[in-house]
């Protein structure tokens, strides 16, 4: 009995040690964001003493408001991308689900390609098309590329995969009742597919929020940037790279919203990530 207890507490202690080592970089980013530079230098590992908000305040009081603007832009672009992608991809998936095996096979193959193509490959022509359409350097341009590229292919895989688990009788009986395709999709299938929608929203939301290359090139320098790129712009210049407090404060601000979302909806996040990953 004692041996079992010892091994259990040994495992617990071991678990905590490994987790602590693994999360140490996160700990450093958090504590150092609230220390004065002098303390970061003299005592990089310790807790803030005294605790200070000055790094965060400096980051937020830049004359160009890069950080606040970035946060607002990221929220808007991410919500617009998710809000547009979900109806488009779920309707397409339902349509695709009811096609013949041959059509399904061909389109699935084409979408599989979209999952794999690195964004760098088609970036130059993408820029040219956006320019021709007058959408280069605009938020709609970035959102449009976001909702119709690899994210779209991913969403279709998630939805089609989920549709296989929906009993066919539900769709059939709705049709018998005289419901049109659009109503079947919106009123019957969409509520059933809620878990798939959560998966798509989490993945696409995270990818859009964290995307770097897309906003860097497509939004460009004149329109205000997303927080991910804004962080790079404000810290990329070496002028601030010895201001460690500044780097940590901006890192923390940039990570805050996905982090809060994750902590509050942990169960959905983990479930969404695992089921989405299996499709990807």
């Amino acid at each position: 009995m004692n041996a079992k207890l010892a091994s259990r507490s040994g495992r617990l202690a071991g678990g905590w040690v490994v987790t602590a080592v693994f999360c140490f970089p996160i700990y450093l980013a958090v504590v150092n964001a609230f220390k004065a530079n002098a303390q970061i230098k003299s005592d990089p590992l310790g807790l803030p003493n005294p605790f200070t908000f000055s790094n965060v305040i400096t980051a937020l009081s830049r004359p160009d408001h890069l950080i606040q603007t970035g946060l607002v832009n990221s929220v808007v672009i991410t919500s617009a991308t998710v809000a547009l992608l979900i109806p488009l991809s779920s309707a397409t998936s339902l349509w695709l689900f009811e096609r013949s095996a041959r059509v399904k096979g061909i389109l699935t193959g084409i979408f599989a390609l979209g999952l794999m193509i690195p964004p760098q490959v088609g970036l130059q022509p993408t820029v040219q098309v956006l320019k021709a359409m007058g959408l280069m350097n605009t938020y709609p341009g970035l959102v449009l590329v976001g909702i119709s590229g690899g994210y779209f292919a991913f969403a279709v895989f998630v939805y089609v995969g989920f549709l296989h688990t929906v009993p066919k009788e539900i769709l059939d009986s709705a049709r018998v009742d005289g419901a049109g395709d659009l109503r079947v999709w919106w009123s019957i299938v969409m509520p059933l597919m809620r878990p798939a929608t959560i998966t798509v929203a989490i993945f696409v939301g995270l990818w859009t929020w964290n995307d770097f290359l897309g906003p860097l090139i497509i939004l460009g320098p004149t329109q205000g940037q997303t927080i991910t790129v804004a962080m790079y712009l404000s810290l990329g210049a070496s002028a601030v790279s010895t201001d460690y407090g500044q780097v940590y404060a901006i890192t923390l601000i940039a990570a805050l919203i996905p982090l809060i979302a994750y902590l509050f909806c942990q169960r959905e996040f983990v479930a969404g990530l695992t089921s989405g990953a299996a499709k990807g």
């Binding site: 890069l66 709609p140 959102v143």
Partner: peptide, 28 residues
């Protein structure tokens, strides 16, 4: 019952407006 198309159209319109109206407020 709500018309699904209306909801969809409204949703898409709002999303696009959001994206289009999102401006750089630092730009004086």
């Amino acid at each position: 019952m709500k018309r699904p198309t209306n909801v969809l159209v409204a949703g898409l319109a709002v999303a696009f407006l959001l994206a289009a109206g999102c401006s750089n407020d630092s730009d004086s």
